[in-house]
Amino acid sequence: MKSIVTVCLSAVALVFFTGCRTDYDIEEVAPAEFLESSGGGEHVHEEFAAAEDSSTVDEHMEESHAGHVHDAGARNHGTQWFFNQPWAAPFIWGKLLRDAVIFLLLAVAVFVVSGRRKRK
């Protein structure tokens, strides 16, 4: 019973800690000026449109990294957008670090609590 309470409290703490934001979703984390300039979250390939008649998709991928925005949360290119948005990378690193520390603390808490219960 105690372990269930501990897990629930940890989950609640985690929820409050992160403010229940989606965090990793580009639509929610992108700065407003970026979203405005890129068309508000639509799937936009600005430079691809410009280069439509002269280049292939691959050239577009290699040459035009800026302005490549997908729908909110739709990360069909895996983590690619971490690397082609100059503002996104450090932002995501911060989130990753924060989550890593939370999970490490939770790991220590669970280890200690389960050890105490065993000794009793």
């Binding site: 999970f103 939770l106 220590v108 669970v110 280890f111 389960s114 050890g115």
Partner: peptide, 17 residues
């Protein structure tokens, strides 16, 4: 590594019980 440590601690809690 931190997430793995978390999963292992959960595994240990189950195993200890």
């Amino acid at each position: 590594l931190c997430y793995s440590a978390f999963m292992l601690s959960l595994a240990l809690a189950v195993f200890r019980g």
